[in-house]
Design a protein around this nucleic acid. Sequence first.
DNA 1: TTGAAAGCGCTACCAA
DNA 2: TTGGTAGCGCTTTCAA
Lengths: 364, 364
Amino acid sequence: MNDEPKSISIKDIAEALNISIGTVDRALHGRRGVSEKTKTRVLKTAEQMGYKPNLAAQALKLNRRISIGVVLPKHISYFFDPLRAGIRAAAGAAMGSQISLEFHEYPRIGSGDIEALEAAHARKYDGLIFLPGDIQRFSPLIRKISRSGTPMMCVGSDAPDTGRIGSVSAHAYISGSIAAELLAHKLPRKANVAILTGELSTLDHAEKLSGFAATLAIQAPHLTLMPTLEGHEKPKEAYRQALTLMRQKDRPEGLYLSTANSIAVIEALEELGLLGKVQVVATDLFQDLATLIKSNKILATLYQRPFTQGKVAFENLVAYLTRGNLESPVVQLAPHIVLRSNLPLFASRISETDEGEPESDSLE
Amino acid sequence: MNDEPKSISIKDIAEALNISIGTVDRALHGRRGVSEKTKTRVLKTAEQMGYKPNLAAQALKLNRRISIGVVLPKHISYFFDPLRAGIRAAAGAAMGSQISLEFHEYPRIGSGDIEALEAAHARKYDGLIFLPGDIQRFSPLIRKISRSGTPMMCVGSDAPDTGRIGSVSAHAYISGSIAAELLAHKLPRKANVAILTGELSTLDHAEKLSGFAATLAIQAPHLTLMPTLEGHEKPKEAYRQALTLMRQKDRPEGLYLSTANSIAVIEALEELGLLGKVQVVATDLFQDLATLIKSNKILATLYQRPFTQGKVAFENLVAYLTRGNLESPVVQLAPHIVLRSNLPLFASRISETDEGEPESDSLE
DNA sequence: TTGAAAGCGCTACCAA
DNA sequence: TTGGTAGCGCTTTCAA
């Protein structure tokens, strides 16, 4: 129970000490021009009186109009659209909405990403939210921009040791781990399982694979992990790989789709009449996947909570910009395990299946 | 891309229209004392110029020191302690922390709850956060306090049709539904399953039971739901019921513990040598449960995210108090499905197993 | 080293 | 129906 009949201000402190409010302000903020003696006196009485700065007044006076640039790909829209929405929501709720937001977009990871980030940097925002794509290519740029004084906040993935101030993402290793455990529960006897992995971010996919493999080894030694199929950036490629995989005689009975192109793989399964016979754990959530879960065609999907990622990334960046530090710089969200039973809870967050790859080879 | 070189104020609008800022303010807020004509003119130019109120200035001027009372039980601490922590965290992050918080506690649901709420009401807070216990007993009081003008925010459960402004809880029906689906996945053949339900809140437990039963019927017709064991408020009672249940010849192979006394049931299972042989889905998360999950003794637990519940309840109450309305009054969170694989993600949120029932009959 | 005072954008009150 | 103005708590500049 904290009883403060009325909040006390620097004026109260000034009066109690018979000094001016200017001096109190200087002492409180450790600015130069105060004698050590008065400074400690002020600090002590402030403590005693339970002084807390009035943030409204502070904000009003300083009236710093924070500008934030957001650099994210268009594709995959069912992931990045809600992520952007989360950023917008957080910005709307933030004090004053005095914060200006600008969104920069590029087609997809690996195509125009570096350029977009450089362009954004040129606009000299107070802070930057961005997706670190291919770490190898991004790292030098992140380091450069960070050193130039612009706080960088990673979202969707992380880029450690680059000077970025923090990151928000779904826990990739544990995503893989969950997928393995779910498959293990559904496949009680000896069987093969496989992982199909892909774009988004190299780092995250490596992590997911690690988690998947490690958990299989520990919790489900009866399941054998087949050679990983990786690097299909395009649906058609994913489709072909899936067909080949599922036609071989030791075909897997469980599949972990950590890729964005899960629909292409699903189509391959359907064509072979294996949909519903093979246990599938997918990633992310969109309309077509929801339908498949509802009809028991796939077991589960691991929802990476893009909306929350955007929201938290924004909040943390603003916290850093205003308060100057971050209590937990690296946030790794718990992915939601979406099954048939809890699917309705995510209905409001489901977006259309991503259409758009006009320039790539589409799936028929 | 929104470019606003500098944010515009009511002064700008006033100058543009050659009127005083007082008039602009009146028009903008629909206060009386403005002609319809000037009002529409102001509204239109405000729209055109893209006026957004400076919330800092507004807050500074109004300087309303919002007071919020929180009325929650001590027991069960592993649920209500993090819930309180969530409220505190949200209060700390809120603009100015100009909001005063007071916590009221009572031993447990049904013992001193009504009295505590009445006592809190007597302190005339601007808003109240509380757990609606037994709906039958609470409803009249909630209605009364609401009508007296104090906004009431339910947390942990809901109390519909009482005049409360909103609620935050885990989705009880879907919790039951998830439990059924998890058991169905692990028990592929004909078997009996049972639910042990208990205190917390009557409404929620009925909901969990509904979800469990309905999902069993639809998704797992091969599983038979045995008569529900309900109403054991005390560990010893839960323990006895569990012993009796598991000793009968058609004993269940799957158990859903929607009760707070899961540990007592677990002890019964252990005694009978059934721990690990019977599939168990529990509720909430605390140290002993975490240990059991880690060692594969129980399948999963449904984490009701008390911290988040507290945080959201506070944020929504404050939003209501300041902005006057709520976009989504009833929030039903998706419970986290905690398995062995994703347990580490929740480690930081795990509290000690609740000890405290000095006055009740303890378990040996 | 310290004091005095202006002013951030807004609300509310009093006067016209 | 309108205009004018004090002042919320803070930062900052200019004088002393």
